[in-house]
């Protein structure tokens, strides 16, 4: 359980230390990709808690969602329609749903633990 958190912290540290910067105009894509990644990550956590976690689904979903979100944003920029909003909406809704499910699962777990 602590390993993913360690990985997250390591990633952040590496990112901050290596001083990598992307051009300003691509920061939109990166932010949408982060949203997609967050969504996938929370989806993975929920799946783990529900014991339906599948590594292949998780990893492929992670990259696929990121790519899809970025390409949607790209398409939106070129079409003049704010298509990235679709991605933001979809991922945002799913993020909330996932977090709600996780919260309920954790709550049930704790309440059962407390009952014991």
């Amino acid at each position: 359980m602590w390993l993913p958190v360690m990985g997250l912290i390591i990633g952040v540290i590496i990112g901050l230390l290596t001083d990598i910067r992307i051009p300003e105009e691509y920061s939109n894509y990166l932010s949408i990709a982060i949203l997609a990644a967050l969504d996938t990550l929370f989806g993975g956590i929920r799946a783990q808690l529900q014991n339906i976690y599948d590594e292949k689904v998780f990893v492929s979903g992670f990259f696929f969602n990121i790519l899809l979100a970025a390409s949607l944003a790209f398409l939106g920029v070129h079409l003049g329609v704010d298509l990235y909003l679709a991605a933001v909406f979809a991922f945002g809704v799913r993020l909330f749903q996932n977090i709600a499910v996780i919260r309920r699962i954790l709550l049930t777990k704790w309440s059962t633990n407390g009952d014991k």
Binding site: L8, G11, V12, I14, G15
Partner: peptide
Amino acid sequence: TAAILGLMVAI
């Protein structure tokens, strides 16, 4: 994946 997410967030 968590590390990649962290990297992206940091960037």
